[in-house]
Simulated scan of single mutants.
Amino acid sequence: MIPAQFEYSRPAGVQEAVRALAEGGEDAKVLAGGQSLIPMLRMRLAVPSLVVDLGGVVEMRGVRDDGDALVIGAMTTHDQVLRDPLVHEHAPLVVQATSTVADRQVRHMGTFGGSLAHADAAGDLPSVAVALDATFDIEGPGGRRTVPAGEFFVDYLTSAVSPDEVLVSVRVPKLTGWGTHYEKFNRVAQAWALVGVAAAVRRSGQTIEDARVALTSMGPTPVRARGVEEALIGAPATAEVVNAAADRAGEGTEPSSDVSASGEYRLHLARVLTGRAVAAAGGL
């Protein structure tokens, strides 16, 4: 199909983008990589009055070291994230999840921030952001504010970014000495995850000192598996402990039933995949 007619703006800076959104009102849409928005435009599921293209905002691209964290620009493509040595060194969980996003063509166009701001519960990166306790820098007419990952994902396809705001960058804490792994199950290659698990484990000898686990596609937003973490922290690093902890993966979740899978099947997948992800992250 052909999209409905709309105005087009390509700002050169963040402030210019914010002004354009303010002028466009609630019917304005931000274009980042376009891998979600363009199909919606073509099917007329989105009919904006104005499209603000962030492709010219250079300051929103790239990865930089900021002490105890990496700052990843929202317009950094998935491919750029995958090739960045800082991300490989300090945020391997981001690399592991990003490498599973769609296919190479999408990863060359899709952006790190665009994927997160889209807030799809079946997306791979939201659960990673939650597991890593990432924070989001958002710019709007009132200035810049920072939102923790636990508050950023509000509902299905709804984030904390208001219609007149722009996600500028994501701050990802470095996990030195941690093992990480992203495990997901999908029916066919490049399909959305039926369930995914982002896991990070820190060991001291044969003891699990700390653990972070977050689930993909187990509710309208990514879910932190607190019950699993509680069962792991301070416990021996054994397969028996991991399997028992993984049985708690369904606590606090709201898995949906749809044409792809039933809620009961998603619960089963969450337990199985959590066991695999935690075992891999913990070196078991």
Rank of each mutant, 00 (worst) to 15 (best):
A46I: 08
G55K: 01
G33C: 00
V30G: 03
R19F: 00
I38K: 05
R44W: 13
D53W: 01
V47M: 03
G34N: 10
R19N: 10
E26V: 11
E26C: 01
V58H: 08
P39A: 12
R42P: 01
G24S: 01
L50P: 11
I38F: 09
L50T: 10
P48M: 05
L45P: 03
G25E: 03
V52T: 04
A28M: 03
G56F: 05
M40R: 14
R61K: 15
G56M: 12
A20Q: 01
L21H: 10
R19C: 09
D27P: 01
L37A: 12
V18C: 12
A32R: 13
V47P: 02
A20I: 05
A32K: 08
G24Q: 02
E59W: 08
A28Q: 06
M40C: 12
V47N: 07
M40N: 10
G33M: 03
M40G: 00
M60K: 11
S49M: 11
G24D: 05
G24N: 09
L50Q: 07
A46W: 10
A32F: 05
L31R: 11
A32T: 07
L45D: 00
K29N: 11
Q35V: 14
S36T: 15
M40P: 02
R42H: 12
G24Y: 08
A32C: 11
A20Y: 02
E59K: 09
G33I: 14
D27E: 14
D53C: 06
A22Q: 13
V47K: 15
M40V: 05
V30I: 10
M60P: 01
V30P: 00
S36Y: 00
M40L: 15
A22D: 11
V18K: 14
V51C: 09
E23R: 15
R44D: 15
R42Y: 12
L31E: 02
L50M: 06
G55Y: 03
M40S: 09
K29W: 06
E23D: 12
V52Y: 02
P39Y: 15
L41D: 13
M43K: 13
A22Y: 04
S36K: 13
L41C: 10
V52C: 03
G56Y: 02
V51N: 14
I38E: 14
V57P: 10
P39N: 13
V58S: 14
G25K: 05
A32L: 12
V51K: 10
G25N: 05
R44Q: 13
G25M: 02
L50V: 02
D53R: 03
L50W: 07
